[in-house]
Design a protein around this nucleic acid. Structure first.
Length: 727
RNA sequence: AGCGGGAUGGGAUAGCCAGGAGAUUCCGGCGGGCUCAUAACCCGCAGACCGGUGGUUCAAAUCCACCUCCCGCUACCA
C-alpha cells in the first residue's frame, strides 16, 4: 500500500488521544501531547497543511463517581479538569489548533449522527445482557465497580476480569458474591437491553486497513490477534445519566459508551477549528469525509479503492495502551458512517521513573505542575521525551539522565554553537558578514534537511530532533576547524582570493567572514529544524538572528535562505543544570513519595480509599483446622539480610532471610509499601515449608508474613534469634 | 496461555522494514588540542564475537526457525 510522501496535496490532521477529565497530568501523559505537537509542527515545516486537535474526555463512570464523592455535578467536575488541561498544554508549548471536549454541542450532535448512520447501515443490534446493580444506591455498576470471587480459581476478582488470580476474562454475571466497590453493598444483577455495534461487519475491511496503516509497528501488529480472530461485538451503551444520549426512541435511559463519543471528538474538534477559521482556511470535511468510499458495504472498499480515494491524511498520536481502540473500534466506527480512514497511528511507549512505572497513588511521578513550578523550560522535557528513544519504546526518566541530555546536547552542542557563532558575528561584524554560504556548508545543511524530511515520513521524532542537533554539532566542528578567532584583525592578507577572481568586485569575503557567515547560516537552519521540538528556544534563536516574525511560519526552504545582515549580541539559549539542582529535584521527589506513603489514610487517592479498609477485615471462617494441620506449618523467626526490588514488578521485592539453619531467598509483595533499604536487620515471621514458587523469574523459597493490603510486616516483640519456632 | 515490543562497548541509545565499507550517537574512561564559546568546544585512543543455537546467502546486528530472559497488552488507565 502506498501513501504519497508528506507533504501531500490534501490537508492533514494530527490528533492526540483524549486526556480523561479525572486527575492531574504527569510527564508520562505529556509525552503523547508533546509528540503530537512536535509532529504536527514538523509536518507544517514540510509545507503540509495541518490541523492539530484534541479535547478532554468528559464522560464515563470514574468521572460520575468522583464527582459524586466531591458533591459536584459530573459536568462541573469534568469541566474543571478540562480547563486545567487546556491551560496546562500551552505551558509546554503544546498548541492545539482546537482543543474541545466530548460534552460540547458539536460532539454531541456529531456523535449522534455517527450512531444514526450505523443504524441506517444496519450495523447496530439490540441484546439483553446482565448488568450489575447496586440495589441500595439504585445505580448500575459497570464492570470495574464490582468485585467478588472468581468462579474459576476462587481468587478475589474484578467484575470483568480475574485480575489477581487466573487472569480469565469474566462475563457479566459470572462473578460470585458480587460487591459494589462504591458502597460496599452486595450487588445484584438485572437484565437490561443494550445496543451493540456489530464489529464483525468490518472484519474483512479491517484486514485490509491494518495493512495500509502507517505509523509505529506496534499499532499494526498488536491488533492482528483481534482482527484475524473473532471480533466481539462492541456494546455501545451504558446505564447511566452522564454521557451522550443514545439517539433513539425508548432508549432515554441509555447513554453512549465513552469510547464511542471520545474518538469522534477528533472530528468534532477539527470541525470547530473550521468553524473558527473558515472552510477556505481549513476544511474539516476534506480531511475526514471527502473522497471516502461509500459506507453501505464496508468490505467492498479494498486497497485499490483507497489508493484512488482522494482523501486527507489522518494521523493519530496515542499511548500504546489504546492501540486496539484506534485500530479496531475506531476505523470500524468511521467506516460504518462513511468517513475516511486513519493514515497512521503513532503509538508511544510509556515513561518510567528511574526504571519503574509511575505510580500516581504513591505520588511517584513527575507532575506537569511540579515541572513548571521548578521554573524549568518546557522545551527541555520536550527534547528529552521526543529524542531519548524510538517512539514506541518506553523511555526512562530520571533527573540525572535529564541533566545529562540537557547539558550535553542542548547546552554543550546546540546552545553553545548558536551562542559562540552569533556572539562572534555580532562583536566583529554587527551581524552576518557579507558573503554567500560555502558549498561545503550548504551541502551539509541540505543533508540535514533531507534527514528531517525522511524523519517525518518515517514518523520518527527522534530522527527529526537529531537532525537539528547533529547539524549544530557539525557547526561546532566547522568553527573549530576554521578558527575564525585567529583570522580576524588581519587585513587583506587573509582574504580568500580564489573566491574573487576578477578585479570587478570590490573585495571578496575574508576567510573569517566566510566562516562566520557559514556559521550564521547553520544557526538559522538549526532554528528552523529544531522548531518542532524546541518551539520556544527556536523562536528565541530566530529573533537573535534578527529574523522577523515566527520561526514556525518558516518552512524548510528557509534553512538555505540568507539570514538578515544585522543583529546584536545574543544571550545564552540554554542554562546548564547544576548537580546541586539535580540533588534538590531528587530530594523533593523522594519527600513527596514518602509523604504519600505516610499519610495514606488522609490524603489517599481514589484507589486506596475505596476498598482497602473493608477488604482487610473479613468474618472469621466457619471451617476450623485441626491442631495437627497447624503443626504442619513450619513458622519461624527470620532476619532480613538483603532486600532489593525486583525489576519491573510493581510490588515484589527479593529478600534474603536468615532463618537460623540457612539463608533463604524469598519474594514478597511489599516493595511499594516499605523502604527496602531500611529492611535489612528487621525480624520477620517466615513460613519456611511453603512450596517453592517462581515470581517474575525469581525463585521464592518461603513466605514472609505481613498483614493486609498495606503489607504491615509481622515482627517479634522481643529479640528471638532467627530460626526460633513460632507456636 | 495467546499476542505485541525489547535484549547492541561500563551506562544509555541508533541501525533491522528496503542484508554489503572500519557498527551510530550521547554519557563515562584515557591522551592531546583550542581559547570565539556556558570548566564549554574540537581531535585521537581504549572498549561490543550486536541475548543463545541453528539455517538461508558470495555476504547477516539486519532475513528465517527454535530457545532464554525482560517489559507490556488481552476489550474504560499516556
Amino acid at each position: 500500500m502506498s501513501h504519497d510522501d508528506f507533504p501531500t496535496e490534501n490537508p492533514a490532521v494530527v490528533t492526540c488521544g483524549l486526556p480523561y477529565a479525572n486527575g492531574d497530568l504527569h510527564i508520562g501523559h505529556l509525552r503523547t501531547y508533546i509528540s503530537g505537537d512536535a509532529y504536527a509542527r514538523a509536518l507544517e515545516k514540510l509545507g503540509q497543511e495541518t490541523a492539530f486537535v484534541s479535547g478532554s474526555d468528559m464522560h464515563g463512570t470514574p468521572v460520575a463517581v468522583n464527582a459524586e464523592k466531591r458533591g459536584v455535578s459530573p459536568e462541573e467536575f469534568a469541566l474543571e479538569h478540562h480547563e486545567k488541561y487546556a491551560e496546562t498544554f500551552p505551558r509546554f508549548n503544546v498548541e492545539f489548533d482546537n482543543y474541545g471536549h466530548t460534552h460540547d454541542e458539536t460532539n454531541t450532535e456529531l456523535t449522534q449522527s455517527f450512531v444514526r448512520s450505523w443504524v441506517e447501515n444496519d450495523h447496530v443490534f439490540e441484546k439483553e445482557i446482565q448488568v450489575a446493580w447496586d440495589p441500595e444506591a439504585d445505580t448500575p455498576l459497570p464492570d470495574r465497580y464490582v468485585e467478588g470471587t472468581c468462579p474459576y480459581c476462587g481468587a478475589k476478582a474484578r467484575g470483568d476480569e480475574c485480575d489477581e488470580g487466573c487472569q480469565r476474562h469474566l462475563e457479566p454475571g459470572e462473578i460470585e458474591d458480587p460487591v459494589s466497590t462504591i458502597t460496599g453493598n452486595p450487588a445484584e444483577y438485572r437484565t437490561r437491553e443494550h445496543k451493540f455495534l456489530r464489529l464483525s461487519d468490518f472484519q474483512e475491511y479491517l484486514k485490509g486497513f491494518i495493512d495500509r496503516l502507517e505509523g509505529t509497528s506496534n499499532a499494526r501488529n498488536q491488533p492482528k490477534e483481534w482482527i484475524e480472530g473473532e471480533l466481539q461485538d462492541l456494546c455501545i451503551t451504558r446505564d447511566m445519566d452522564w454521557g451522550i444520549d443514545y439517539p433513539g426512541e425508548g432508549k432515554e435511559d441509555l447513554v453512549l459508551y465513552v469510547w464511542v463519543d471520545a474518538p469522534i471528538e477528533y472530528v468534532s474538534s477539527t470541525k470547530q477549528y473550521t468553524e473558527r477559521v473558515g472552510a477556505d482556511e481549513y476544511d474539516w470535511e476534506e480531511v475526514w469525509k471527502a473522497g471516502a468510499p461509500e459506507a453501505d458495504a464496508p468490505e467492498a472498499a479494498d486497497d485499490e479503492t483507497w489508493d484512488d480515494a482522494d482523501t486527507g491524511d489522518i494521523v493519530h498520536v496515542i499511548g500504546r495502551d489504546i492501540i486496539q481502540h484506534h485500530t479496531v473500534f475506531w476505523p470500524s466506527m468511521l467506516r460504518g458512517a462513511g468517513y475516511n480512514e486513519p493514515r497512521a497511528v503513532m503509538a508511544s511507549g510509556f515513561v518510567n521513573l528511574d526504571g519503574q512505572a509511575f505510580s500516581t497513588s504513591r505520588n511517584r511521578a513527575v507532575w506537569a505542575d511540579d515541572y513548571l513550578d521548578e521554573g524549568l523550560d518546557p522545551d527541555l522535557v520536550r527534547y528529552y521525551l521526543t529524542t531519548t528513544g524510538g517512539f514506541q519504546q518506553d523511555v526512562d526518566f530520571s533527573w540525572e539522565k535529564f541533566q545529562e541530555r540537557v547539558n550535553g546536547e542542548l547546552v554543550g552542542t546546540l546552545g553553545n554553537f548558536a551562542y559562540r557563532s552569533l556572539l562572534f558575528a555580532a562583536r566583529n561584524y554587527d551581524g552576518a558578514p557579507d558573503a554567500d554560504t560555502s558549498e561545503e556548508v550548504a551541502s551539509r545543511i541540505e543533508d540535514a534537511v533531507a534527514d528531517f524530511e525522511e524523519a517525518v515520513n518515517d514518523y520518527s521524532l527522534k530522527q527529526a530532533g537529531d537532525a537539528a542537533v547533529a547539524l549544530a554539532g557539525f557547526g561546532n566542528e566547522y568553527i573549530q576547524r576554521n578558527e575564525p578567532w585567529n583570522l580576524t584583525g588581519d587585513d587583506g592578507e587573509s582574504r580568500s582570493d580564489s573566491e574573487s577572481p576578477s578585479g570587478d568586485e570590490p573585495r571578496g569575503p575574508t576567510r573569517a567572514e566566510q566562516v562566520i557567515y557559514d556559521c550564521v547560516q547553520i544557526a538559522k537552519a538549526v532554528a528552523v529544524l529544531s522548531a518542532p521540538i524546541l518551539p520556544g528556544k527556536a523562536q528565541t534563536l530566530w529573533e537573535q538572528l534578527g529574523e522577523e516574525g515566527s520561526v514556525h511560519d518558516a518552512n524548510l526552504d528557509a534553512c538555505l535562505q540568507s539570514p538578515p545582515g544585522e543583529f546584536g549580541e545574543p544571550d545564552e539559549l540554554f542554562d546548564k543544570i547544576e548537580d546541586e539542582r539535580v540533588e534538590q529535584l531528587n530530594e523533593k521527589l523522594q519527600e513527596r513519595i514518602e509523604a504519600a506513603t505516610d499519610d495514606s489514610g488522609e490524603d489517599a487517592t481514589e484507589e486506596s480509599e475505596d476498598d482497602t479498609m473493608s477488604e482487610d477485615i473479613q468474618p472469621v471462617k466457619e471451617d476450623r483446622i485441626s491442631f495437627e494441620d497447624f503443626q504442619d506449618l513450619d513458622i519461624r523467626v527470620g532476619e532480613i539480610e538483603v532486600a532489593e526490588p525486583i525489576e519491573g514488578a510493581d510490588d515484589l521485592a527479593r529478600l534474603e532471610v536468615d532463618i537460623g539453619t540457612e539463608t533463604r531467598q524469598i519474594v514478597a509483595g511489599i516493595k511499594q509499601l516499605h523502604d527496602l533499604d531500611a529492611l535489612p536487620g528487621t525480624k520477620v515471621v517466615v513460613v519456611a515449608n511453603l512450596e517453592q514458587a517462581e515470581l517474575f523469574g525469581v525463585e521464592s523459597n518461603g513466605m514472609v508474613l505481613a498483614a493486609g493490603e498495606e503489607a504491615d510486616l509481622l515482627t517479634t516483640h522481643e529479640d528471638s534469634v532467627p530460626g526460633t519456632k513460632v507456636r
